[in-house]
Design a protein around this nucleic acid. Structure first.
Lengths: 217, 217
DNA sequence: CCTTATTTTGAACGGTCGTTCAACTTAAGA
DNA sequence: TCTTAAGTTGAACGACCGTTCAAAATAAGG
């Protein structure tokens, strides 16, 4: 899967970096909208305004390109979530609602902020989660942060079985993704602040996770 | 999208019905495993043991075939859910947990029962829900039953905003799908009964929906 | 300013895709 | 039994796929 790259002898030019960014952004949109097989290298190249061969030059094979796109966005989001967690911990002792807030809020605010790249990323995550083909990619990009939050929650509920904490995490993530990419099914977005919907989502997740962690069975 | 078909002049033979079923089942597996674009007519034909042209004869175009497969399974599941709801209503006044149980349990038991066709259907639903391309299909196949359950829940919480009930329904569905097709992320299935996991899922959904329906905001 | 690593082009390669269709086989209905 | 609608085959169509590569253009580093 991964071959070690030849050592660079020169710094990339500004133009090359811009081209690379255009290719990755275009690929992100097409992969998100049409899935891995549905997105074609030629469509991506045309949207980025380059020749097809250049996509391979900057992104490698189609699989490597997909991996690259998911990993770069996941890394940035992971950083934001961990930062939110540390900030919250510095203010007050963590509770369940705060922990889930730190996980859910960063992404939902990015996606609802209107940046099409983060909306696309949500669809990408949905594709990756739905297809067992991407199991390794999910494990690499999503699991470390998820494990971190699972550990925080488990520390609050010492008696809860580990599997139950993990289940709550998975359910919460799925509800978060549905909140973003199935918003049209919930109804037309309210013209005012979207924060109401976000708070409602976090309340749903918190109550659900709390219920299964404190149940007797 | 839909042309009116020529009137049949003869009943289909038993062999033809079997062939048709083999084609639809094979298509269901490939669409579920690889998505719409990832599944090829030739793979489906080979798995069904027929020539490629026969797939078009029984299933129409690729889009029509996809629609056919989702609709037939959705119709059957919808019937089971409504039956469960009516049975429960006959026994005792409905409450939130019972309503959600009637929605979630029929599918999860089918999928966890080991029938690969129902496991495949779960992945199909995930694909349909993740891709805006299938918005109309989702509206046709999923919304009527969802609306029915939303109405039942709304009747229990007269003061709750309609959008909040719909949000709870969408979150619950997403958690249910995650429970089935992301079970590997929650952990190895317990060797004993899977009903424990199902009860936990229903408890999660019930507590979450209840929380957002009774919140002040 | 040179040298040359890097970026970019343009075209081509072998395959696979969804779809179509004439010809052949099967079996329903009179 | 006979007619013929329906089922099935096998091959072909044009289009698009991911990938490769020699050659040209660009620009970093000495």
């Amino acid at each position: 899967m991964f071959v070690l790259e030849k050592q660079r002898q020169r710094a990339p030019s500004a133009r090359s970096l811009q081209t690379r960014a255009r290719i990755l952004d275009a690929a992100e949109q097409f992969f998100a909208a049409r899935g891995f097989e549905g997105a074609s290298i030629r469509d991506i190249a045309k949207a980025a305004g380059v020749q097809g061969g250049l996509v391979a030059h900057h992104g490698g094979s189609k699989e490597e390109l997909f991996h690259l796109i998911v990993a770069r966005r996941a890394g940035e989001l992971s950083r934001l979530r961990i930062e939110a967690l540390e900030t919250a911990r510095a203010c007050a002792p963590l509770n369940l609602g705060t922990i889930l807030d730190c996980f859910v809020r960063p992404y939902v605010e990015l996606a609802q902020g209107g940046d099409p790249r983060w909306v696309a990323y949500g669809r990408l995550v949905a594709h990756v989660s739905a297809d067992p083909r991407w199991r390794d990619l999910a494990a690499e990009c999503f699991d470390p942060t998820a494990q971190r939050f699972i550990a925080e929650i488990a520390a609050l509920f010492p008696g809860a079985p580990p599997g139950t904490v993990a289940a709550g995490q998975v359910y919460a993530v799925s509800a978060m993704l549905a909140h973003v990419h199935s918003a049209w099914r919930i109804g037309a977005l309210s013209p005012g602040s979207d924060a109401v919907g976000l708070d409602r989502l976090i309340a749903f997740c918190t109550a659900g996770v709390y219920a299964i962690l404190t149940s007797d069975t």
